[in-house]
Nucleic acid binder design. Structure first.
Lengths: 186, 186
DNA sequence: GTCTATATTCCGATAGAC
DNA sequence: GTCTATCGGAATATAGAC
C-alpha cells in the first residue's frame, strides 16, 4: 500500500499533466485522498516543493526505464520513448515539459532548473539513441543526431498538446510520420 | 492612438503568450494601462470574453496575413509562417495554441471552440501551401500534405516552448532542420 | 502525521456614483 | 466609460491541539 506522501506526488503529477501547474490547487489533492490541505503542507511545505518532487520522480522513472533498455537495439529503445508518450496520450495527459514550459517564466527558479535538467537528460539520451542507431543502419536521417533528437522530442511533446485542440487522431498521424521519416518502420 | 479596448486585448494577448491564461490577472492589465479592473469588466464582462477576443484578433491577423500572400510562390508563403514564429521567439513569447493547449481542459467551452477553430484554419492553410508547393517542385516530402503540415506546425509550436526550457538556440536548430527536410533551402 | 481553525492575499465580478 | 467600494470565493500557508 502506497503511503500518503507518494500518493500526493502521484496525484500532483497527474494534475500537472491534465490541468497545468497554476491551475491545480491543494484541494484537488486533499479531496480525493480524503485528507486536509494541512497534511499536504506537512509533507511539502510549499507548492514549489511539491512541484520539484514531481519532477524528481519523473527523472527517476526516466533513468530507470532507459537504464533497463541499455543492452537492447536502438529501435527498441526509441520505441520505449514513443510508448511513454502513447501511454500519456491514451490517458488524455500531456508530458511534463509540455505542461510546464508555457508557464516556465512564472515558476520559481529552483523549479525551472529541475525542468531544464530533465529536458537536458531526455535530449542527451535521445541523441545517443539516434546516433548509435544510425551507425547500425537502424535509422536513416540527415544532419546532426542532436538536432534530429530535438525534432523528435519536439514532435512528441506537441503531438500531445495538439491532440487536445485538434482531436485525438493527431497523435497517431504525427508519430507515424515521425517514425516513417526515421526509417524506423512502424 | 489606440483606444482602451484594443489596448486591453493587446496586453491580454501578450500576457497569455508570456505567462499563460490561468496565470495572468486583470491587475496585470489594469496596472500598466493605469485604469481600474472595473474598466476592463466594462469592455469584457468575464475573463472568457477577453480570451475569446484575443483569439478573434489572432484569427483576423492570420487571415489578413495569409490573404495578402495568396499570389506569392509557396516557399514565400511558408516563410511567412516561419517568420511569425520567429517574431514571437525574439520577443520571448510562445504561440497562442502552445500556451492554451496545456490548459485546454480547464477552459470554458466557448473558448475551447475558438481555439480549435483557429488551429483548424492554420492546419488547412499550411496543408494547401505544402501541397501546391510540392506540385511545383518547391518542396520535397513524403506522405500526405496534411500530415506534413501537422508536423511543421507541431515543430514550430514546440520550438518556442522548448526554447524556454532548453535555451534560446533550440528555436533555430529546429526550424533550420525543418526547412532542410522540406528541401526549402534556408 | 493529521487535524481544526485561521491568517493573508489575491482573484473575478458587481453596484452605483460621476 | 471610468471611477470607488465591496462582495464572495478560493488560493497558499501557518499555528497549535491531538
Amino acid at each position: 500500500m502506497q503511503d500518503t506522501k507518494e500518493r500526493i506526488v502521484s496525484l500532483a503529477d497527474q494534475l500537472i499533466k491534465s490541468r497545468g501547474y497554476n491551475a491545480f490547487s491543494y484541494k484537488d489533492i486533499s479531496d480525493p485522498l480524503e485528507i486536509k490541505n494541512a497534511a499536504i503542507h506537512y509533507h511539502f511545505p510549499t507548492k514549489t516543493d511539491l512541484g520539484m518532487a514531481v519532477i524528481d520522480v519523473e527523472m527517476q522513472h526516466f533513468m530507470a526505464g532507459t537504464g533497463k533498455l541499455a543492452a537492447q537495439p536502438e529501435d527498441k529503445q526509441l520505441k520505449f520513448l514513443f510508448d511513454t508518450f502513447s501511454k500519456k496520450h491514451k490517458e488524455g495527459l500531456v508530458c511534463l515539459m509540455g505542461s510546464l514550459s508555457p508557464d516556465y517564466d512564472t515558476l520559481p527558479e529552483p523549479l525551472q532548473d529541475k525542468i531544464s535538467g530533465l529536458s537536458a537528460a531526455i535530449l542527451e539520451w535521445t541523441t545517443g539513441c539516434l546516433e548509435r542507431g544510425r551507425e547500425k543502419g537502424l535509422f536513416r536521417f540527415e544532419g546532426e543526431a542532436s538536432d534530429r533528437a530535438l525534432l523528435v522530442i519536439s514532435n512528441l511533446l506537441a503531438s500531445l498538446l495538439l491532440s487536445r485542440v485538434m482531436g485525438s487522431k493527431v497523435f497517431g498521424r504525427i508519430t507515424h510520420q515521425l517514425l516513417r521519416d526515421l526509417g524506423a518502420g512502424k
